[in-house]
Design a protein around this nucleic acid. Structure first.
Lengths: 326, 326
DNA sequence: TTGAAAGCGCTACCAC
DNA sequence: GTGGTAGCGCTTTCAA
């Protein structure tokens, strides 16, 4: 920076100012400085800047997994909203609360200016670190009643409940429910709770044998369907909530020559092109993943600009997409 | 840190040392310091540390898109290899060289210690900034002959050439080729070059009407197939290289009642569970996306530990997965 | 509109 | 094995 200043015949102070707020500097001076920056190939040192100003522009994001295309949507939303001015640090928790805590610790050491979490369940230590840090925080995975700070998303409970009531309404009696492993996964837990609540609300009882946890994946979905049919031959509908499980189940049903939805109904969640393209197209839930990421980042930046505490809970809802599989 | 030092009755210097290398400090001292850290809830300031030591542990990663599940594999590989000690900063270039340059500039301002790029094509400015920065750099998208620094991956050219020769070998005469837009995308360009080279090698000529660029997506793949059939009714095979294009084309063929592979062969790239699950299962190319990310990060860290210049080009190859669609 | 001085919270370096 | 001193490259604050 001294080099640039010398070349532009101003002080380092003026260069610093010109970089942060070009309007605060005389136009001619600014032009000279810009020329000098170009000539020297100067790249500002944000580390030094951050230390001096005691804040960074870096935003932290923690997702359960990086290879999951669901989270990829949210990540893209966050990244797009942040733009070039806010670098994005990403870590995955590996679907574990301890992993999340480790990532939070690492991020806080980097003095991130805000954080987006996909969990609404955290270790005690995670909570206290986040509170002590005093940075804005947006939780996105599940719309929680008492967020750490802000939250944006949809209610997994409501969504699962709605889909289950839909199935019950269409006359299905023995509905299977498949979710990802519930351990350390509040979203999966909420969905199962919603599934059970819908039964209760309609005065039905869901047999425990109809509840299944499954790893993610197309093949796993097929396997889950097979397991349920074997356990409960009378099963007449299956709600697979998570990843591509439902698509896997549908392909397996096709393979077995089972008539969907007449012999067995199959419904899913997290709509995508594929669920629409298969035959029959899947009835499913659609979640605004990209928008959630986008809004989360916007809320963060808004809070950064104006440290008030107004908008702190944003429900982006869900859609039940009715197609031909139920 | 002063607080911790006071509580542990040592100097700040010793706390700093204990944090960076616990073995360099007396065991009892270390225990006292750890207790003090616990008691105060101290979170080290890596910004200050980085400024003082003039280096960070932060690794930068730039991919064309964050929502693409292909890159998600690579990202996960990088993240896993880096572990908790190396925070990961991610940006997407939006499939544009200018986007990559902007991300590089932002990363260098953050003084990242190394960078992983998915491109092997860069703006002049990107190249010079990277050179001036003097940080290790791994290019991963396409195995290039003259990398900026290090490279790991596979040859898109060879892979596409192999698949095309496979098709030619099976007697197909009018082979269509669909890729993602080639502008600013060296991988797509290389694949097309490989496709053409295979024809040349076999003494065949590929009609220009059989070359198509398409946006990504299942639907786009179907559309691409339709376009090719309309343009060249005699087309007897289509090689769709990119994303889920091939799957989309296969589903479209099924919809139209076209016998695959007898009426028309369809082959793809970037194998995944779905390509295996559809009917007929797709003959395709498999790329070690996760391994590429993992190795890239490992190469980076190895170089960081030992600034030599030995391993700089790693070919992880590709596989041609022969299934029933050709 | 511009500049000088002080200092952000650490680590490098050297002394003990 | 431990501590003191200087300074990393900026921004803050205040003065001109």
């Amino acid at each position: 920076m001294e080099d640039v200043a010398a070349l532009a015949a101003v002080s380092a102070m003026t260069v610093s100012r010109a970089l942060r707020d070009p309007t605060s500097v005389n136009t001619e001076t600014r032009l000279r400085i810009e020329a000098a920056i170009d000539a020297t190939g100067y790249v500002p040192n944000r580390i030094a800047g951050s230390l001096a100003s005691r804040r960074t522009n870096v935003v932290g994001l923690i997702v359960p997994s990086l290879r999951n295309s669901l989270f990829a949507e949210t990540i893209q939303g966050v990244s797009d909203a942040l733009g070039a001015h806010h670098p994005l640090m990403i870590a995955d928790s590996g679907y574990a609360l301890a992993g999340e805590e480790a990532a939070i610790r690492a991020f806080l050491a980097q003095r991130i200016c805000g954080i987006v979490l996909h969990n609404t369940q955290h270790t005690t230590r995670s909570r206290s670190m986040l509170e002590d840090a005093g940075i804005p925080c947006v939780e996105t995975g599940n719309l929680t009643e008492k967020p750490l700070d802000m939250t944006v998303g949809f209610s997994n409970y409501d969504a699962a409940c709605a889909m289950t009531e839909y199935l019950i309404g269409r006359g299905y009696k023995n509905i299977g429910f498949v979710s990802l492993p519930i351990h350390d996964n509040d979203r999966a837990a909420e969905r199962r709770a919603g599934f059970l609540a819908a039964h209760q609300r309609r005065g039905l009882i869901s047999a425990p044998e109809l509840l299944l946890e499954s790893p993610p994946g197309l093949r796993s979905g097929g396997l889950a369907l097979a397991t349920l049919i074997e356990r409960v031959p009378a099963v007449d509908a299956v709600f697979l909530s998570g990843d591509v499980l439902a698509t896997g189940a549908l392909l397996e049903a096709n393979r077995r020559g089972l008539d969907v939805p007449n012999k067995i109904a199959i419904v899913g969640s997290d709509d995508n092109e594929l669920q629409e393209a298969v035959s029959p197209p899947l009835t499913t839930l659609r979640f605004p993943r990209y928008q959630i990421g986008h809004q989360a980042a916007e809320m963060l930046m808004k809070r950064l600009r104006n440290p008030s505490r107004d908008v702190s809970r944003l429900d982006l809802g869900y859609e039940l997409i009715e197609r031909a599989s139920a």
